[in-house]
């Protein structure tokens, strides 16, 4: 009951931020799911074991660097409602990114070595975390939603 009460006291921008965080968690889960699915289904081989350990660092290191030097790019979520024009704009953006990410997931499925797949997935994950921490805005939300939907649509219709 306490949790429900706390939620009522939150401002809209805090609620939006919470939703955004949930969305990034979903995307992270989906990416992990994609990696596991492709790994088992495409019978990926591990060519050189040591490469698997180093693959994630390829994108994690630049991410940490960027996060440490960059200030917040957006002011954060607004309190009131979005205008109709903004809704249409970001809806279309989400649609475009969904289509784009269906293609990117298709490309990921063509990879036949685990270390390259891992590098690709971690790169996407780093992008998502970058959006999460620096672009706290509806722009970030629409990109993250697009990524999630792209992966799901690929899984449903093309996998």
């Amino acid at each position: 009951m306490n949790i429900i009460k706390n939620q009522k006291n939150q401002t809209n921008s805090e609620k939006r931020e919470l939703l955004f965080t949930f969305q990034t968690i979903i995307v992270a889960g989906l990416l992990a799911f994609t990696a596991i699915a492709f790994f088992f289904y495409n019978h990926l081989t591990v060519v050189k074991g040591i490469k698997v350990i180093f693959a994630p660092f390829l994108s994690v290191v630049p991410l940490l660097f960027i996060l440490s030097i960059l200030r917040d790019l957006r002011k954060g979520f607004i309190e009131g409602n979005y205008t109709q024009k903004e809704m249409v704009k970001f809806g279309l953006l989400t649609l475009a990114i969904t289509i784009g990410f269906t293609g990117i997931t298709f490309l990921l499925s063509k990879i036949n070595a685990l270390e390259i797949l891992l590098a690709g997935i971690i790169a996407v994950l780093s992008t998502v975390f970058f959006l999460r921490s620096k672009i706290k805005d509806i722009l970030g939300m629409s990109i993250v939603t697009g990524i999630a939907e792209g992966i799901i649509i690929y899984m449903i219709f093309l996998f």
Binding site: N12, K15, R16, L19, F20, F22, Q23, I26, V27, F77, G80, N81, Y82, M87, F90, T94, I138, M141, S142, V144, T145, A148, E149, I152
Partner: peptide, 12 residues
């Protein structure tokens, strides 16, 4: 994800 997105836009 779509519902989360909708909720974010139409939070009022």
């Amino acid at each position: 994800p779509i519902l989360f997105f909708v909720r974010l836009i139409v939070i009022e």
